[in-house]
């Protein structure tokens, strides 16, 4: 067997079930010796129950993780208890304000020490010098908004049925043209890359264009991307 011939799956099944007579079985083994692709396929077939089982376990644990992090399938936003977020936000604002006051008055009593403690509380495991270097490395030109693109829809982790049209919306002050790109997450393959007019603020993907799966999309700037899922209805 090679790529020019479709493999005889029925023969593989009969071989694995022990339903070939001795002569057929020997011939099949000889065929495997001469054809590494057939050997690979038989190996895959033997391992398939285990792969199937592990895929089920993976899906179950993935669901546990998503459930614990309260990530709804249609939104995918990491949500904690609203009260916890409110308290956390308040504390960060307070600390930020305190830090600002201290930094504008560095000679004040104990100012340096308090700033150090605050930083280590906010970023417990990050070396600040490295952090700054990394940020500069990723975005060397700063965050100017000359070419700013704001993705509006689909929202992060939105879900669509295979037969749904998918409308992409954005806001931008960019002129000329811009590329709408869609990646398939599992393979990392670019599924679609087409030039759109930024001033149109929208582009529609026709139904059945994407197979079920998880995708990322972005407009020009790869660092700003969103995911969405297409499901089998």
């Amino acid at each position: 067997m090679n790529r020019n011939h479709n493999p005889d799956l029925d023969l593989i099944e009969r071989y694995l079930e022990g339903n070939l007579d001795e002569e057929e079985s020997n011939a099949f083994r000889k065929q495997m010796q001469d054809d590494p692709e057939l050997t690979e396929l038989v190996k895959l077939r033997k391992e398939l129950p285990d792969h199937w089982k592990r895929a089920g376990q993976y899906q179950q644990v993935r669901q546990e993780v998503r459930g614990s992090l309260q990530v709804p399938a249609h939104r995918g936003v990491f949500q904690l208890n609203r009260t916890v977020w409110t308290i956390a936000a308040s504390v960060i604002i307070l600390l930020g304000t305190a830090l600002l006051v201290i930094l504008t008055n560095p000679s004040g009593p104990g100012g340096g020490q308090m700033a150090e403690e605050t930083d280590s509380l906010l970023l417990p495991s990050v070396e600040r010098a490295d952090d700054k270097a990394l940020l500069e490395e990723v975005n060397p030109e700063g965050s100017g908004d000359m070419n700013h693109v704001e993705l509006i829809g689909p929202e992060q982790n939105a879900t669509f049925r295979e037969g749904d049209p998918i409308v992409f919306n954005w806001e931008t002050n960019r002129k000329g043209s811009i590329e709408l790109t869609i990646f398939e997450v599992t393979s990392g393959r670019i599924i679609l890359a087409r030039t759109v007019d930024p001033s149109s603020h929208a582009d529609t993907l026709q139904p059945q264009t994407l197979e079920p799966g998880r995708y990322f999309w972005y407009l020009g700037d790869k660092s700003q991307k969103r995911s969405f899922t297409v499901i089998n209805p």
Binding site: R3, D10, E40, L41, L48, H51
Partner: peptide, 17 residues
């Protein structure tokens, strides 16, 4: 058998013409 063939074709499409 029908479903298994579909599965193998999707998992290892390179094995098929």
């Amino acid at each position: 058998k029908r479903c298994l063939e579909r599965l193998i074709r999707m998992v290892r499409p390179e094995a098929f013409q």
